[in-house]
């Protein structure tokens, strides 16, 4: 099953590439005119159009693009005239780093706090946590980012307000925190509900009756049973993050594939836009495939 899904990825990727390419042509605006500038003569625009390969028939452009893909060539950016693959590689690193940091932190916080909220239902802790998670979901990302910048960079002077640092740079903390807050907020609510549902199950009562501690029942049985839906939520969130959180990248002046794709759309840099959409699609397919594998694993473990 998993092997078949992996084998389908290239086919799906080719489909995505063709769809994206055709979609590009439905966008209003002339990429050659934009690249040449508002004052360029028709002659100059024609030269630029030819240099960008936009004067060829559509079928030929699609064919050439797919042929290039087979050879690992995503084309040349119309804006920078640099290979798109190199540019995407440069911005993909920060996106992957941020996404993984955020998801690991969100899972740790979301599962821990969500479980605590479920176990302490009825006390003041649970409503407070749920109110906090609701608030985190209501706040727009850019607003969270700006608030964190003001607090941690300006008032406390603890962290840099922006920058494209890697895993061990302090510049990643604020953008990561900005993304963790809503991601963890959603997981808190989700995990709480899942754990509460399972706490009422017969197997929990049986386990407790057998003398197991409450902690071991929750960790060994309840959370294991809740694992499958948690994987679904986490994989969806990870796919979203891998697609780039353009607003966070803008607020923290952080390079990333989301902002790269957005800039490409604005400047009608079709190769760059196509390349970034394709890479994002591949990442989403990969995450979904890994999630499927994780489901199987989780099912076997919970069954065992």
């Amino acid at each position: 099953m998993l092997v078949r899904r992996i084998a389908m990825i290239p086919v799906l990727a080719a489909g995505v590439a063709v769809c994206c390419y055709l979609l590009m042509f439905s966008l209003p605006g002339d990429p050659a005119r934009l690249a040449a500038g508002p004052n360029a003569s028709e002659e100059t625009v024609a030269t630029v159009r030819a240099a960008l390969g936009l004067d060829r028939p559509l079928w030929q452009q699609v064919g050439d693009y797919l042929w290039g893909l087979l050879h690992g060539d995503l084309g040349i950016s119309t804006r920078s005239r640099q290979p798109v693959l190199g540019e995407i590689t440069a911005v993909l690193g920060p996106t992957l780093t941020l996404a993984l940091v955020v998801e690991v932190a969100a899972v740790l916080v979301g599962v821990t706090v969500g479980t605590l909220a479920a176990l302490h239902g009825g006390r003041w802790v649970s409503p407070a946590l749920l109110a906090g998670s609701a608030l985190s979901l209501c706040l727009p990302l850019f607003a969270i980012g700006l608030i964190l910048q003001l607090v941690f960079s300006l008032y406390l002077d603890l962290l840099p307000p922006s920058g494209g640092g890697g895993l061990f740079s302090t510049a990643i903390i604020l953008p990561a925190l900005t993304c963790v807050i809503p991601s963890a907020g959603f997981l808190v609510r989700f995990v709480r509900t899942a754990v509460e549902d399972h706490l009422a199950d017969d197997f929990v009562r049986t386990a407790l009756a057998k003398g197991l501690t409450r902690r071991s029942v929750v960790v060994g049985h309840v959370l294991r049973s809740a694992l499958t839906p948690i994987i679904a939520v986490v994989s969806t969130d990870l796919a979203r993050l891998l697609g780039g959180v353009a607003l966070v990248e803008v607020v923290f002046a952080r390079p990333g594939i989301g902002k790269y794709a957005f800039d490409a759309l604005e400047t009608r840099d079709l190769p760059a836009l196509l390349g970034s959409l394709l890479v994002i699609s591949l990442l989403v397919l990969l995450v979904n495939t890994l999630a499927d594998a994780a489901y199987d694993l989780a099912d076997r473990r919970s069954a065992g």
Partner: peptide
């Protein structure tokens, strides 16, 4: 030259001394 497109981010950086 840092690539900072958002004017609020630029001002936060200026005020933070970066």
């Amino acid at each position: 030259w840092s690539v900072i497109g958002d004017e609020s981010t630029r001002m936060v950086n200026f005020e933070a001394g970066t």
